[in-house]
Computed example of a mutant assay.
Amino acid sequence: MKVLVTGASGFLGSAVIKAIRATEGMTALAGGRRNTGPDSVVFDILSSPATLATALAGVDAVVHCAAGSAQATVAGTRNTLEACRMAGVRQVVHISSIAVYGNAQGTVLENTPQVKTTGRSYAASKAMAEALCLSFAPLNIIRLRPTIIYGPDSPLWVTGLIARMKAGYWGTYGAAGNGTCNLVHVADVASAVVAALQTPQAGGQAFNINGPDTLSWNDWFRDLAQAAGLPPLRPVPEAVLYAQVLASLPFKLLRRAGIKPLPAWATSAPAPSEVRLFRRHATYPTQAAAQAMGWAPCIKLAQGLASLNLPACPSTGEP
């Protein structure tokens, strides 16, 4: 089976490429904006479907990992699926997100109602991309909904978070940080992709992809700081947290406008969407993926932390 992976140079895409190439009977093409060498192909998801279809000659399946702005998420998914239809590629694994469930709490199953597909939010764009998957009836599409993906060089939940901790303004947040942190290692997500490729009869379905451990966000912050050799994080009262969030908003708007540098405390402060995430008590069971694809996560938190290979900070504890 020859598989083209979109967004192959990204954090998840590169892990998926590695997992596919390690699987007997599968080969992988790395799709991206540039040709990076052997076994790679130019596949810019914002190109026309006709252009993309030419890159799919001889391809048996597509894994759609490419991410971007809300507009790119929707348009890129539409272009990719249309290109698959034009090229006769019937099997697609689409990487979605638990963001499609919005602020749902408690036990969140695959049939939990999704957010509205209107608006420009990340959640709305992911929900719209899933709606597009359902509208391309000739294609055999499996939608995977990973939780919080972490692993070596994770730009958001590992290296990015450590950088915010090193700035000295991150902490633990009491009740505001006691929501459920649903971590899944990037290698487990990649193995779920392989399982989906090997189970075409699951086409049309969506599956939660979550890790084996349950912990709070405060726990994750403490564990990650310790793994990075940072000093223990200070407790931040909720009133201080919300003051930081509000005060940082104008600076973050300036950053979006390309104005730099900005105060470290402002760029390090949690965004309102993060605060909502850190408070949310929700779990995303993976029994459906186990039953339909025979997939289950295998990388526990201790092993996942060990895989990060983080350089230790100086013994003085200075950020």
Rank of each mutant, 00 (worst) to 15 (best):
A104Y: 02
P146F: 00
S154H: 07
R120V: 12
P138D: 10
T107D: 05
S135V: 11
L134I: 13
L139Q: 06
Y150C: 14
N140R: 14
T112F: 00
R143T: 15
G106A: 04
A104G: 03
M128H: 10
G88L: 01
R85F: 00
S97R: 00
Y101A: 05
R85S: 06
Y101R: 01
C133L: 09
T117E: 14
T159R: 14
Y169W: 14
V92N: 01
V158H: 06
A163W: 06
S97A: 04
R145D: 10
P138I: 12
L156C: 10
L144G: 09
R90S: 10
A99L: 04
S96I: 02
A104N: 05
T107L: 06
I98E: 02
A131C: 08
G88S: 04
R90L: 07
A129H: 07
E110H: 00
L109T: 15
T117P: 13
G119T: 07
R85K: 08
S135Q: 10
K116P: 12
L132A: 06
G119L: 03
V100P: 02
P138H: 15
A129Y: 04
E130Q: 08
L132K: 02
K166Q: 12
Q105I: 09
K116T: 14
V108S: 04
T117R: 11
A137P: 08
T107V: 15
A129G: 10
Y101N: 09
R145H: 08
V93H: 03
G160Q: 06
P146S: 07
R120H: 12
Q114R: 14
V92F: 01
S121A: 06
H94D: 04
K126Y: 06
K116H: 12
V89H: 00
T159N: 14
I95A: 01
Q105W: 02
K166R: 15
E130N: 09
T107C: 12
